[in-house]
């Protein structure tokens, strides 16, 4: 697993009122702490976690697999990381590159590469 710093962020898109961070990496990493009352994973500062992606005390890294076809939401520090976010505690393979250092205020992240194409419509596009 190779680490990529926030310096690897290469493109910022502004579309539909949303900033999308394009990263040249296979995974995005954030750090969370489990809330003992609710059991929810709450995002904390990256510095609380081990850079190598190992848990440190009650602080646990979470990973998100990226692809260029869509963007994913990275929640702000202090907010819960919903199960639907795509973040898991499963460590990526050693060969994968990982980006970290996302804005504490939250952002959207997508992978550098070839996007998906425009979607189709069965009824056609003509008029």
């Amino acid at each position: 697993m190779t680490a990529a710093s926030i310096g690897a962020l290469v493109v910022t898109l502004t579309g539909c009122g949303e900033d999308v961070r394009e990263v040249d990496a296979d995974y995005a990493q954030i750090c969370v702490r489990e809330d003992p009352d609710t059991g929810e994973s709450v995002r904390v500062d990256d510095d609380e976690c081990d850079e190598a992606g190992r848990p440190r005390g009650s602080f646990i890294p979470m990973f998100l697999f990226l692809n260029a076809s869509r963007s994913f939401a990275v929640p702000p520090v202090g907010s819960a990381v919903p199960r639907s976010s795509g973040f898991t505690t499963t460590r990526p393979p050693a060969s994968a590159s990982v980006a970290r250092g996302f804005a504490p205020s939250g952002t959207s992240v997508g992978k550098t590469g070839v996007s998906k194409g425009f979607g189709g419509t069965k009824s056609g596009a003509g008029s």
Partner: peptide
């Protein structure tokens, strides 16, 4: 392909950018 569909589609973010 209709513009109003394209700008709302996934790659539309790149168009608008």
């Amino acid at each position: 392909h209709p513009w109003e569909v394209m700008v709302d589609d996934g790659p539309g973010g790149f168009v608008l950018h």
